[in-house]
């Protein structure tokens, strides 16, 4: 009596799984397919259409010049990560291996930073950047993005260093290595996969960031997500261009996210869930 019941249960579950899959993928698929449609096909509910790549070509032409936004996004995210990760690694080692005066206070501050509404942070920076001439510059955006990625970086890398047995370091110190040599020659190689993972995670966060870029850039330093708002004409939004730009925003991040998928949850929850 148990067997047919189990088979029926599994069949229901498979149907439900495909339903979940459909709800999850349909918006992505529909938006994604619009990127390969001629504009006339976008404005009809057509499932079959003649695919084209011309949207991707046309968004690189004036006035859109999407490649400039792509370059801005790439530079801002890369430099942000390149600045944040070395500092985060040193701090993560310090937090992982030592007891510090005010340690808990520092933890709570770093954690709380992550949860601050971005709109609170951006107001003072807008005023400061206006005075310093940093509005609409990639440098300005990199500075505020540091606020965004730093806590994630520290937390994730600390999790990886926590997992390295301290005995390995002690053995190296007995052999006469200094603390800095231990960090450079023992910890860095062992934590490298974790550091790369944290770097990729921070890159995705910086790449997808929207509010800072919306407020602090207007023209020169506009990034891809803000660039989505460019595709407007008198007759309304140009969905075939928006969709093509959407592909440029999401596909590179999918590749990166799939590389580090196992650690995504740990990163986002700041180690509260392993």
């Amino acid at each position: 009596m148990v067997r047919p019941n189990a088979a029926r249960n599994e069949a229901i579950q498979v149907v439900l799984i495909f339903l979940v899959l459909a709800v999850m993928m349909i918006p992505i698929f529909w938006m994604g397919s619009a990127a390969f449609k001629y504009s006339v096909d976008v404005y009809q509910l057509k499932l079959f259409f003649e695919p084209t790549l011309r949207n991707f070509v046309e968004i690189t032409e004036p006035p859109y010049l999407i490649q400039e936004k792509f370059l801005n996004s790439t530079i801002v995210a890369t430099v942000t990560v390149a600045l944040a990760i070395p500092l985060a690694t040193l701090a993560a080692y310090g937090f992982s291996r030592f007891r510090l005066v005010g340690e808990k206070m520092m933890f709570v501050t770093i954690l709380a930073t992550q949860f601050l509404p971005a709109v609170v942070i951006v107001l003072p920076f807008f005023i400061m950047f206006r005075d310093l001439g940093l509005l609409d510059t990639r440098l300005g955006l990199i500075i505020v993005d540091l606020a965004l990625v730093m806590p994630f970086g520290i937390w994730m890398i600390k999790g990886f260093i926590d997992g390295i047995p301290i005995e390995i370091e002690e053995a190296a110190m007995i052999d006469g290595a200094s603390r800095l040599q231990v960090i450079g020659r023992v910890i860095l190689p062992l934590a490298a996969p974790g550091i790369v993972t944290a770097g990729i995670f921070c890159f995705i966060i910086a790449w997808n960031e929207f509010l800072f870029a919306l407020i602090l850039t207007t023209n020169e330093a506009v990034t891809l997500p803000v660039g989505l708002a460019l595709f407007k004409a008198e007759e309304g939004e140009l969905w075939h261009y928006i969709a093509a730009a959407g592909i440029l925003i999401m596909v590179p991040m999918w590749v990166l996210a799939l590389l580090i998928q196992k650690h995504f949850v740990q990163g986002m929850t700041m180690g509260a869930v392993k």
């Binding site: 993928m25 925003i249 799939l258 998928q261």
Partner: peptide
């Protein structure tokens, strides 16, 4: 595949 929507920019 669950990672895909989450890796999308919320603006997108």
């Amino acid at each position: 595949l669950l990672i895909l929507p989450f890796a999308m920019s919320p603006a997108l």
